[in-house]
Nucleic acid binder design. Sequence first.
DNA 1: TTGAAAGCGCTAACAG
DNA 2: CTGTTAGCGCTTTCAA
Lengths: 338, 338
Amino acid sequence: MAGKGAELTATTIAEVAKRAGVSPATVSYVLSGNRTISRSTQVRVRRAIEELNYTPHAGARSLRAGKTDVVALVVPFYDWSSESVLMPFVYGVVDQAREHGWKVMLVTSDGGADIDSVVRSKMVDGVILMEVRVGDERLKVIERLGIPAVALGMPLEPVNIPFVDLDFEAAGRACVQRLVACGHQHIALLASPAGTFEKKLGYAQRFWQAVAAALDETGLRFHGLPVEPTVEGTQRALEALMAEEPALTGFIVQTEAVADLLVRILQQKGKSVPDDFSLIGVAWRDAVKHLVPPLTYVNFPSVEVGRKAIELLAKEGPGILFPALVLEGATVAPPPRT
Amino acid sequence: MAGKGAELTATTIAEVAKRAGVSPATVSYVLSGNRTISRSTQVRVRRAIEELNYTPHAGARSLRAGKTDVVALVVPFYDWSSESVLMPFVYGVVDQAREHGWKVMLVTSDGGADIDSVVRSKMVDGVILMEVRVGDERLKVIERLGIPAVALGMPLEPVNIPFVDLDFEAAGRACVQRLVACGHQHIALLASPAGTFEKKLGYAQRFWQAVAAALDETGLRFHGLPVEPTVEGTQRALEALMAEEPALTGFIVQTEAVADLLVRILQQKGKSVPDDFSLIGVAWRDAVKHLVPPLTYVNFPSVEVGRKAIELLAKEGPGILFPALVLEGATVAPPPRT
DNA sequence: TTGAAAGCGCTAACAG
DNA sequence: CTGTTAGCGCTTTCAA
């Protein structure tokens, strides 16, 4: 870094100690609270800290104390398609970390090399993994390193680290029920992109299976297809599904973008949502704000999920699935009478 | 962190030295390359490092060397509306940082308190600021701290730190020219949300002024309004603008979401893009992929802008504006004859 | 209730 | 070409 050089000389604990007329140890203890300090000393030390504008050196502290108060957030940057959906998680993580006085280091998912480096060099005390997959290399890295970790997103197979996620099973069932309760008999799932299935991402498979199971239990046939969130992708999926079952009136959509596209494609065909077709999906609250008509959807509380990941890192606990809450919009209505 | 405790005992440089039969200093020099080491010693040391799986302790290193190889990325999380648009910048920053062997620490913009803490505790060597504003408190913090910094986004007023951004002046002019060249005589700007103007964000004002100036120079009247990227917001803006100038046929849009909404609102009114109305905007390539019809737009190379920010931190240099390149879609056509 | 002092792991003089 | 050594700033025994 072509630096102008930071502050002339940073204040050290020794200077604070001198100024307060105490030993460095005492300053340290005032800061950590690991020892009872007399009221008067407390005050003097705190004033000295204030006056000298002292901040402990993180490196020195980590060297001595063996912890950094930094957590690594491993983001799947490789997955461009789902990128926009990532930010709220990141926000939740960063903001909640602050509550604990922790910082967040952003790390890429390149097979775990970055995780390894960051952990082994003792830059972080814990790791949060996004989009954990079956046989995920990063899990092996984590395990080998023996570092506290939390998965943001429920892996498909049980793993040794706790996780937070939306209850996609319940979400799938809720979507089916909502449509069935409204009278729909022919329902199809526009699932997440094929890539999410190839990568064996938990949410893709779980949602698919839940929808299939719920339809089955209701005595209805299952129709479903992975869909790319593009115009052509959605169009193609729609055609394929309609060909498979021309009587389709209800759609379940896993991607906000596809919900958007579907409505428009149907409109272009002169069809109306929800008069001709009903639509229900899974989405983050803030992501559906711009949809017309307002989407009826299962809310994915991304920010809260991010926060919870930090909490799990703070105090170990069991994995948590957020309940699937259906928020009413205007895309679900009874099917047209024929 | 409720830890299982990391590796039993981490390897230190002393152990490596012993194993290689050299002094710690030599190991250090092999690693840093700051001294010429004989071929044979090199080999022995490297093998020892390999065998012991040694990684230097970042804290110790930073304590001694006075640098961390970490940069802070200050993200404006408060601005929910622009959130989705942030990720590509973040990616560009993180990925390019990797090229330099740097890590990225995510920091919030809460008035600069986090920046202050992270810099004063010597956790980072440099700072990248997103969305710098006039009178931005963070700038004062940066200045006071005397830490190398780069702005991602050109501030409205000249400041003491280099910046990277899209050339919004050129972008504005390019949009006008593209429409005018096509025959449009009545053009309106659907600008970024009112909040971006209140916050005096550079891109908001610059784009607005450039469009106004370009129209003026062409002898056309300027019409423009800040727009919230919601259905109602866009609808309201459209109505207001049409009321102001019913002959409007060309729209310039600063937000991808608004481009999307505008097309749909027009379609619902039975109007077609580009047959009845033409549309051109500013957007990130990957964000317009799902638009129908494909948007004609000035490309905002977000990832590259993020990369460039890191490069500016690496080797100080002048601010850089990326040229405004119009990418052809299918939303611009000659106005309808009347 | 407080201090003195050792040492965390590393780098960079200084010395050879 | 390589080794010895003095700390970087902090926390934490151990001792008072």
